[in-house]
Design a protein around this nucleic acid. Structure first.
Lengths: 219, 219
DNA sequence: CAAATATTCAATTGAACACTTAAATTATTT
DNA sequence: AAATAATTTAAGTGTTCAATTGAATATTTG
């Protein structure tokens, strides 16, 4: 009576149940267990991007970026929107950024090297890092979002003005020397704000960078 | 002037900085991106275990369990305590369980299949699942911790009594028929409470299982 | 010190992964 | 309907990973 065997085989035993559950979760975690894919998630939190933009920003080939995006899509971490003859990639929902943020902070807790690398990198520029809750101390300050304009348009701190780091040098004359210039970008591992600091400090401004990104507050 | 090149080579460039950071984090995530290792983390949250216990509980060979534990140790998620002629493994700190809990809950959000599998498995026993904040509704109830005794000793809900599922049948006469018997074990993916429910319901008790584990409240 | 126990290590195998290159697909413009 | 642009897919290659096995290395106990 083969039909009976088939019928009952749909009921999982304890061991199969656990294996299925843990495999499902591990597959999702696996989708995040790659440096490029983590960087892509961090990037997409700032708004939709094309494959080309993602490839350029993360310094990998377009084909490679496409494959990583397919991985992320399969794990339901990224969604695709078709527009004319190109596609825009974005995070499936706000929880994807939230889990990356959680992982990132957990990693900093577990792996002291990470903070050491971050500190070493910033020490070269004598960069001061300010956390959102210390921002008051730097009053009067001017908050400058140094990300590309599209990302600024996609969402930014109310009080911030946008000067993409690529346009900073030509806009230095607009900035006040008597206020603290607080730069911010995509978060703790983004280097735009550091590049901006280098320019600002070398030009005689009082400047510091914000640790957090705009997405860290909203998501 | 070779010494200069060497001297400056210790300073990371932007690209190397990002690669190092994201690789460090990805390596840590990779250590969690395996079904057995996730199950081991879930298990160790209930207290120290020997390799043999871990191997038995997760239904893998001792040598295999040992290797997974070395992986987890290398990623600093698990620590080892030497005792006489055996070793006891435990989570490095409470944050390791916290991140697993976060991942687990994120996965349930992202992958609807997981809840479906859990529901399907439980429906076979007509098991009622109660969340901690709904517990009041089941008063008067008796909270029964059905995990092995060592895990109970390691920490449990104040009001709970301990009847390991292996000893439940011989202890049925101790249980009240007029109260709701609420069983709990190691959390949402543990099947001890379900096994207990099957016995209890077949024996005419009013019974349900708690979704959460004790560790979910403390950590 | 030898036997027993617990655990790791090392070697192997097959599977999965990341990356590159080139070809294929899809939609859009001419 | 052909040409173009954006992106994916497929094939190939080198690398890493999981699982298995049996041997090796402690550590304790008799």
């Amino acid at each position: 009576m083969l039909w009976q065997i088939n019928f009952f085989s749909t009921v999982m035993d304890k061991s199969e149940f656990k294996q299925t559950i843990y495999t499902e979760i591990a597959d999702m975690v696996k989708a995040m267990a790659n440096p490029h894919r983590l960087e892509i998630i961090d990037l997409l939190a700032n708004g939709e991007k094309t494959v080309e933009q993602i490839a350029t920003e993360t310094r990998i080939s377009i084909a490679n970026a496409s494959q990583h995006l397919q991985n992320l899509k399969k794990a339901r971490l990224v969604k695709i929107r078709r527009l004319k003859n190109y596609r825009l990639y974005s995070l499936t929902n706000i929880y994807v950024y939230a889990i990356w943020k959680t992982l990132r902070e957990f990693a900093r807790l577990q792996i002291p090297e990470i903070d050491k690398i971050v500190d070493d990198y910033r020490r070269v520029n004598n960069a001061t890092v300010v956390s959102l809750n210390e921002l008051e101390k730097y009053k009067p300050y001017l908050l400058v979002d140094v990300r590309p304009n599209e990302e600024f348009e996609n969402g930014h701190f109310d009080e911030a003005i946008n000067i993409p780091v690529s346009q900073l040098i030509s806009n230095l004359n607009q900035l006040p020397k008597d206020k603290y210039i607080i730069t911010y970008c995509r978060g703790p591992f983004c280097t735009f704000a550091d590049q901006a600091l280098e320019i600002l400090i070398n030009s005689g401004f009082k400047a510091a960078r914000l640790e957090e990104a705009f997405v860290d507050v909203t998501r």
